[in-house]
Design a protein around this nucleic acid. Structure first.
Lengths: 238, 238
DNA sequence: AGCATAAATAATAA
DNA sequence: TTATTATTTATGCT
């Protein structure tokens, strides 16, 4: 459509909006735009990557796993403008340092998926999404049927731990922030909670601790000594 | 299985698309639509509820926390059609059972926010979002500035090894699948990668080799002898 | 109304 | 393939 204007493409074209480039005859900007739009459309239907992946595997054959979707979507799933996007590309910073002037081509090739491959999968995703949207418009039943698994899984009710349970959990956490599966099972049994609930509790607890530490460090960077050991126990994962 | 008397509800409400209803002079359907659109617009800008909440608190005063956004957005954040939506409303199923014919009014009142309150906050959100979108169009800088906090905290990137690095790594691996910590440090330095990254690479490499061996053994279980030594060296992990 | 935090999702490492 | 971590969303409570 605008092939003839390509002569305008010069290394001085700093405008991020148009600094697209091509690789293997694939318009990277186009792919990027598509990925962005795809994500919005997916979210609008209230679907997860996993759901789309499963549904695609069913209708289009395997090779459309969550990872694959992610890898496509990530081409620019974060909706940043090109300038931002460049800094968040998957490509190794090493390569970027070696080829500071070849941002797009070099970085795209460093993605697990090549632009060529992306180009190939694009119509499949497009077709599928269009179909899904049509189903959605026709009624939720249709979409549900199309997807296979129900897209509206009810969220688990928020568990509320008793003070006693929390006391015990905290005691365990202080001794060990990373209890083994075995330990967690035991704790769960002792407290009569779901093992999964216990596991998540530890995840969130570690997260909370990490945040606390981070905050403390920011406020008094010079006197952070006392917390170091705990920090370490969170980092070292084995 | 509707055995209850539905006289409280409009008898002509066959079409779910228009079965909105009003409460306190507030058009619930309209609120719902707005919430849905708001979420899409928010996502399109790549903003989180938290970010919007913080930004709103700054420009409009407090009381626009993430929780509040959530509670507004959730009015129907999942974009289901009314029929579905009814079944997914936040209201307790208990209430639903008690008043099967009063779906909208009862359920909405069960939300922490009242329709009236929603109506009140709506223009504020609308105004803010319009402004945010305008900023976004004017360039990321503007939006970032408007939001205050940076919407894009960089995430650690997945390391991708260069072919050259891989060649060297593989060479080392062939000589020794279990390099000492010292050796790994040296390799990491030589290649200019994080030591940890190198360590993990060896872990995954051993794993891959193990799988390969396992597969080979399955195919020719009788002649697997030559590989035993390697397997052993993979096992002993200290 | 809003905090604290449980649950869910996406990304990454093991 | 499985675990963990990083982020986001949603909810119980008062």
């Amino acid at each position: 459509m605008q092939k003839e204007d390509e002569r305008n493409f010069s290394p001085t074209s700093e405008d991020p909006q148009t600094a697209a480039g091509e690789v293997d005859g694939v318009n990277l900007e186009e792919i990027r735009e598509f990925a962005k739009a795809f994500k919005i459309r997916r979210l609008s239907l209230g679907l997860t990557q996993t759901q789309v992946g499963q549904a695609l595997s069913a209708t289009e054959g395997p090779a459309y796993s969550q990872s694959a979707i992610c890898r496509h979507t990530i081409l620019r799933s974060h909706f940043f403008l090109p300038q931002e996007a460049q800094e968040n590309t998957i490509a190794s910073s090493l390569t970027a340092k070696l080829n500071p002037g070849l941002l797009y081509p070099a970085r795209f090739e460093k993605l697990d998926i090549t632009p060529k491959s992306a180009q190939k999968i694009k119509p499949v995703l497009e077709r599928w999404m269009a179909e899904a949207e049509a189903r959605h418009r026709a009624g939720m039943q249709n979409l549900t049927e199309f997807i296979g698994s129900e897209p509206s899984k009810k969220r688990k009710r928020r568990t509320s731990f008793t003070p006693q349970a929390l006391e015990i959990l905290n005691a365990h956490f202080e001794k060990n922030t990373h209890p083994s599966g075995q330990e967690m099972t035991e704790i769960a049994e002792k407290l009569n909670y779901d093992r999964e609930v216990v596991r998540v509790w530890f995840c969130n607890k570690r997260q909370a601790l990490k945040n606390t530490i981070k905050r403390l460090k920011q406020h008094e960077p010079a006197t952070a000594v006392p917390l170091e050991p705990l920090t370490d126990s969170l980092e070292e994962n084995s």
